[in-house]
Design a protein around this nucleic acid. Structure first.
Lengths: 246, 246
DNA sequence: AAAATAATGTGTTGGAGGTACATATTGTAT
DNA sequence: ATACAATATGTACCTCCAACACATTATTTT
């Protein structure tokens, strides 16, 4: 079993007489956006000396009167100015040694936002978008958190209409395909992709065309409103026939 | 935002001056076993007055020098006497009002154990197996936790060789099929089931036969050792071709 | 203005995999 | 010895998916 971490801050030492309540709980948000045909994640320069020069995810301690999910929404609102974003809990990281200042257990969420959305305001000059592909190291265990969230996003993207949260309301099928290719790191056949999207019946044809493209413009679509699920919610029981997989 | 919970216990009041550290973190284990052709879960009579008459999952507070995963293993070892069991983190439940005595955030794990295993000892007379199907209500939010874990188990069972942790080392294909049927609540075609299991290439034919069955005995199989993964570990990057789903 | 270019939009075909279903075999019980 | 019940394996059909080709339309070039 792991040894107790040395508690460094004065605050932590004050309350060291009560073991079980010396554990802080935080929330970390992996905020994805799609720009320049790449999947990007929002990072901030780490403020800890141990990690000087490294970037970290956006997180904060959970308040005592605050639901866990609400804490992640707060982070997002404070950092991006956006409300009603797509947010999903992924995993809780609780190694004793994951935070150098003491025992902090963190629950990771990932979020999908439209980088072109008019309400997006990065309220801090140290906040920057980083292409996910180029990220080698992060502060704390945040690289592992990022990887876990990216995997979850990929799983979700295969089955559920979630990636539309990364796009503007109106988009072409080419843009949608490029988005899937960026998330999954694969090349997709254009014709088969369109057929499968058509079968899902997620989209409405807007009878509008792209503008300002240097080639033949494509039709514009939007997601059917009934699939716009922004909040984290409980999954219903699986629907697909069990026989199909076992 | 939710209002602060009334803190009832003396312990909690002592430390009420430090907001962020008044949050306790616990672990709850949904321990599944397969018996009598049913999926069962291990429950204990709730010790809180608010929930008198109701059952609850097995849980405990996380210790300050204890990894989160280690806490769930400890619960399992303390309650069942078993080591090296299959355990997987599922979700963290963090509503402010989920625990009547104060703020307790809990991380839920599910576990799969062989009810016939020689090391299984229920170290408490109040511990009992309950068929999952008959459970209508539990203490706290434990019914929601159970449902979430059952859904996760079903998802996992479709794709990965995990259900073997619920069986003895040697089993027949009929027993395996009945297990899948119990978990998924479906009927499966015997011939197609066998073909799909054969394709997965998970099993070794032991060249032994069932004994003490009142009909023609079937062959016995065991899981190939390379698929015996007992510990919670990070998932690798998804392997299946992205094109198959989008 | 005509031709070349590049992307959109739709259709077809072959193969793999899954579902529904039938028959022979083997051990137990009557 | 016969009936019975469960094991064990095989086949036909159908659906779905991947690979692939061609016509269309707007833009750019000559």
């Amino acid at each position: 079993m792991a040894k107790p971490q040395a508690l460094k801050t004065a605050e932590l030492e004050k309350i060291s007489h009560l073991d079980y309540f010396n554990i802080a709980i935080s929330v970390d948000c992996v905020i994805f956006a799609y720009d320049n045909k790449e999947l990007n994640v929002l990072l901030i320069k780490s403020d800890l000396e141990e990690f000087s020069g490294l970037y970290s995810l956006l997180g904060d301690l959970v308040r005592i009167d605050e639901d866990l999910d609400a804490a992640s929404y707060r982070i997002l609102r404070e950092r991006t100015g956006m409300e009603d974003v797509y947010l999903e809990q992924v995993h809780t990281f609780g190694s004793t040694n994951r935070h150098p200042s003491g025992r902090v257990i963190t629950t990771a969420y990932y979020s999908l936002i439209d980088v072109k959305h008019h309400n997006l305001r990065l309220n801090n000059n140290d906040l920057h978008w980083h292409p996910v592909k180029g990220i080698k190291r992060l502060a704390f265990d945040h690289k592992a958190i990022l990887d876990t969230c990216l995997n979850r996003l990929r799983e979700q993207a295969m089955e559920h209409p979630v990636v539309f949260n990364l796009l503007p309301e109106k988009f072409s099928l080419r843009e949608l395909q490029e988005l899937y290719e960026a998330i999954l790191s694969v090349d997709l056949d254009r014709r088969n992709f369109r057929k499968k999207i058509a079968i899902k019946d997620w989209l409405v044809d807007l009878n509008e065309m792209e503008e300002d493209v240097p080639h033949r413009p494509g039709k514009l679509y939007k997601l059917k409103p009934e699939f716009r699920k922004k909040t984290t919610r409980q999954k219903p029981a699986p629907e697909k026939s069990a026989a199909s997989l076992v």
